[in-house]
Design a protein around this nucleic acid. Structure first.
Lengths: 250, 250
DNA sequence: TCTAAGGGCTCCTGTTAGGGTAGAGTCAAC
DNA sequence: GTTGACTCTACCCTAACAGGAGCCCTTAGA
């Protein structure tokens, strides 16, 4: 599949002029040129354009983008690096928001703001960027493999919990609200008693399997929402407490 | 108190050239000029320069900045508007990070990525900015007063890392309240960015060590209470999310 | 088969936001 | 009263495109 300049420009939301420009400076060459001299781009070029745009977003000069892309052909490490750079850009913006908040406060109160604090977050990123850009090697070594592999959510297929867990949950929620530690004896007893009652009702459950179930609740949208609706943080509290009990019981 | 170009340039981290330029185009005039023709700036000019830099950060052309600042002399409404703009810029960056994540996944799996999805988040902000910039009136009416009242915590007295940590916790608490999954990309990114920032500040931290730290918070009365005071369940949420990130990173 | 609309190409000039020197005047301290 | 840091204007330079002129290519429809 080949794309004309127009098609590319619509896909990537750049102007045709930009495509011409990138061709002229050798940043992004068309994969072939038609008899009539039309530029035609393929998948590879699309990928490269994407990288270019990420770097451009971060205000890298085109010359440097070219150097970086020509020097490092590994798409994955480039992407990982770009992600880090986007992160630090976001942090910079967060810093700026803090500065704005400070300014708003001072202006509202009529207080004079600290002159230096007025410009917090403005100059710093450039230095960071350079530092990071030089550290590409380091980042690559550190993050490349880390960031790549994805996890398939290992959903332990558990049977449905009984409806009378309601009572148990209410007590757990109360404990959470009252600030009772997850490893407090009261909480542990609560869980043990609940497990006991589950077994009585025919649901064979151990501390470990209960912990697994709690973990499942974390992943399962329905159960998690149900618990969180009852009390914010309940699903996480339950999981941590159950996990703790299970490890102690081994 | 009057400042020379050099002093200003060091305070605001801009070059003297920039100051000259802003003078020439009438964007930022010195409050007075010495006999020898030296530019001298006062507090008012510092404030205006701050506004200029905020707008510049958002890629507003200088002409438009001039129009905006000359048209709207109310500092508070300008700041409130700029804050909104910074937020939407951050959202855009978040979308770009999502796009990167998608790209990383597809590249790692060798799957061909949807061509349009490859460029998600690139072109859109400009339109937003224009829309927002036109809506200044609206934003002013809607946000001006909302945004002003600040939390009583004395932000100024906190050091950078404490501010970062607070900011991070606030966002985590929001995520928890809003029912965002612990393994949602947004939360994961939040943590990654926080780790990133910790490392920047000299605290060498990995996903694993951060998870260990979160675990320690669970056990430590003081930290747990602090987190739970901020939002019920936060310490558990933080731990589960951190643990999840760490296991993914192995 | 002709034609008009819509792309596309090159070449040239224009714009924005400054950067880099030069050459000369100025300030502040020892 | 001289030295070194600072400042001024003036002029030219650069990056990353944008706009337009003038001309070519392609393809759907009469």
């Amino acid at each position: 599949m080949l794309y004309t300049v127009k098609e590319i420009s619509e896909l990537a939301k750049v102007t045709v002029k930009t495509m011409h420009h990138y061709h002229r400076i050798g940043l992004l060459l068309p994969c072939c040129v038609s008899d009539a001299g039309y530029r035609l781009y393929g998948e590879k070029e699309l990928e490269r354009l994407q990288q270019i745009l990420f770097y451009r977003e971060l205000d890298f000069p085109l010359k440097e983008i070219k150097k970086l892309l020509d020097g490092e052909p590994e798409r994955l490490s480039i992407l990982a690096c770009q992600k880090q750079l986007l992160f630090s850009r976001m942090q910079r913006l967060e810093r700026l928001v803090q500065t704005i908040d400070e300014s708003i406060r001072c202006t509202a109160e009529g207080v004079m703001m600290d002159k230096k604090a007025m410009f917090n977050g403005f100059g710093t990123e450039q230095e960071w960027k350079e530092a990071l850009s030089e550290q590409t090697q380091y980042l690559k070594a550190k993050y490349n493999y880390d960031l790549i592999e994805e996890n398939p959510i290992d959903v332990a297929s558990m049977n449905q919990s009984a409806q009378d867990a309601m009572h148990f949950m209410v007590r757990m929620a109360n404990a959470l609200r009252e600030g009772v530690r997850f490893d407090d004896q009261k909480v542990q007893n609560l869980i043990e008693r609940h497990i006991h009652s589950l077994n009585k009702q025919g649901h064979v459950t151990t501390a470990a399997s209960f912990a697994a179930q709690a973990k499942f609740f974390l992943h399962d949208e329905f159960h998690r929402n149900m618990l969180e609706a009852q009390q914010t943080g309940l699903s996480y509290y339950l999981y941590v407490a159950a996990e703790d009990l299970a490890t102690k019981k081994v």
